[in-house]
Amino acid sequence: MTDTQQELPPEAMGNEKWHDTTDALWMRSSLSNPDAEAIVEVAEFDDGFRAVRDGKSSEKGTLFFTPAEWEAFVLGARDGEFDIPEEYLTEEEIKIQRGQTEVEAAWVPSPLNTPEAMAEYHRRQN
């Protein structure tokens, strides 16, 4: 075992999808409700892998996706595969889910990003 492998956190051991998220640039939807129980945040890595976490409870862990897995997820989401049953949604959320509103969502940086990640975000914006 190399020194690098010994320094990895336990969840990285044997996990071929694991990426270091220390200074990852986490993004969330502009439609995220700060009062919600959870907020989905996504980080993209240079090799196309993605990481997903709960932006309200990041200590719960991170899921990692290969580029192919991410593409399958996005296509499923576009097809409504993961839509929330409407009885759990507000009227506004129902309209958004049905595409019946002019609300536009955008990716915005997480307030939990490190200063290094925010510097990278601003560099990409310029």
Rank of each mutant, 00 (worst) to 15 (best):
T2S: 15
T4E: 15
T4P: 06
E7G: 13
L8H: 08
E11W: 13
A12R: 06
M13P: 00
G14C: 06
K17I: 05
H19V: 10
H19S: 12
H19E: 14
T22K: 13
L25V: 10
W26T: 03
S29G: 03
N33D: 07
P34I: 10
P34E: 08
D35P: 03
A36C: 04
A38W: 11
A38I: 11
I39Y: 05
E41F: 01
A43T: 01
F45K: 02
F45A: 02
D46C: 00
F49D: 12
F49R: 14
A51N: 11
R53V: 06
R53K: 12
R53Y: 07
D54K: 14
D54N: 15
D54R: 14
G55L: 15
S57A: 15
S58L: 14
S58C: 15
G61L: 15
T62C: 15
T62G: 15
F64C: 12
F65G: 05
A68D: 13
E71P: 05
A72N: 14
F73H: 09
V74P: 09
L75V: 11
A77P: 02
A77K: 01
D79Q: 10
F82G: 11
I84Q: 03
P85S: 07
E86K: 02
Y88R: 07
E91F: 04
E91H: 06
E93I: 11
I94M: 12
K95S: 08
E102A: 07
E102H: 09
V103I: 05
V103M: 03
E104L: 01
A105K: 03
A105T: 02
W107D: 06
W107L: 02
W107T: 03
P111V: 01
T114S: 13
P115L: 03
E116S: 08
E116T: 11
A117G: 03
M118R: 05
R124E: 08
R124P: 05
Q125V: 09
